[in-house]
Amino acid sequence: MSVKECTHHKERKKKLVQRFCGCLLILLFIILLTILIIWAVLQPKKPRFTLQDATIFNFNVSAPNIFSTTLQISISSRNPNSRIGIYYDNLDVFATYRDQQITYYTVIPAVYQGHKDVNLWSPFLYGNNVPIAPFNGPQLKEDQAAGAVWLTVKVSGRVRWKVGTVITGRYHLHVTCPAYIPFGNTPRYGGIVVGNAVKYQLSQRCEVTAS
């Protein structure tokens, strides 16, 4: 084989590789552009959570820095999307006081939420003799003297979006719901006696982030 034929063969192979790479880049660009257009048309929105109420069975401070908590909350989730469904996977609900967790995790079963659908969950939250960090002690004493405390109910888990028959990967979901909870089991601040518990209507909008 001559040197000229060998050089021609290499140049032809090089052009084929360049064409292949060019076609591949164009195909990837078209796919990404299509996804962006579909995403823009659908305008996906995060689910909207609302803390509806809290029923208090037990809520007290048994020592200067120790919480004991038994309460049931009602929290709703609405899918605002008209073309996108939502899969909720392994949601955990718990309560915190000044960024410190004071109840155990309560698991909400996995569920699919259709377009514009609303789901309502009523999990129990428990925390027995949970110690509070010393630096939160003074604030806890002030709250106890006032007869009520600001807690934060949180929901943490993963969600997947469904568009037609396409289901995305999992995204982290974080929900934060502030709640003003009275101490003891007496009907303060408009509470309604329900058996041996007191129910408070909250209707508190929650902050939702997904990443």
Rank of each mutant, 00 (worst) to 15 (best):
V3Y: 12
K4V: 13
H9G: 04
H9E: 10
K10G: 05
E11Q: 11
R12F: 08
R12A: 11
K13N: 01
K14P: 01
K14W: 09
K15L: 07
K15F: 08
L16D: 00
L16P: 00
R19V: 05
G22R: 05
C23A: 10
L25D: 03
L25C: 04
L27H: 00
L27Y: 01
F29R: 04
I35V: 15
I35R: 12
I38S: 03
A40G: 08
L42T: 15
Q43S: 15
K45P: 06
K45H: 15
K46D: 14
K46E: 14
K46C: 10
Q52C: 08
N58A: 11
N58I: 03
F59L: 02
V61L: 15
I66M: 03
F67H: 03
I73P: 00
S77L: 11
R78W: 09
N79V: 14
P80Y: 02
S82F: 13
S82H: 14
R83L: 13
G85M: 11
I86T: 14
Y87R: 08
Y88I: 06
D89Q: 11
N90A: 08
A95E: 00
R98T: 03
D99G: 04
Q101E: 04
Q101I: 09
I102Y: 04
Y105S: 08
T106G: 03
T106F: 00
Y112G: 12
G114V: 14
K116G: 05
N119H: 15
W121Q: 06
S122N: 07
S122M: 06
F124L: 08
Y126H: 15
N129P: 02
N129L: 04
I132K: 01
Q139M: 12
K141L: 05
E142I: 08
E142W: 05
D143L: 06
A145W: 07
A146F: 05
V149R: 09
V149M: 15
V149G: 04
V159H: 03
R160M: 07
W161S: 12
V163C: 09
T165R: 13
I167T: 15
G169Q: 09
H174P: 04
T176S: 13
I181S: 00
P182W: 02
F183S: 12
T186G: 07
T186E: 14
G191N: 02
G195Q: 01
A197E: 02
A197Q: 01
V198G: 01
K199M: 05
Y200K: 02
Y200Q: 03
C206V: 04
E207G: 10
V208A: 04
S211H: 13
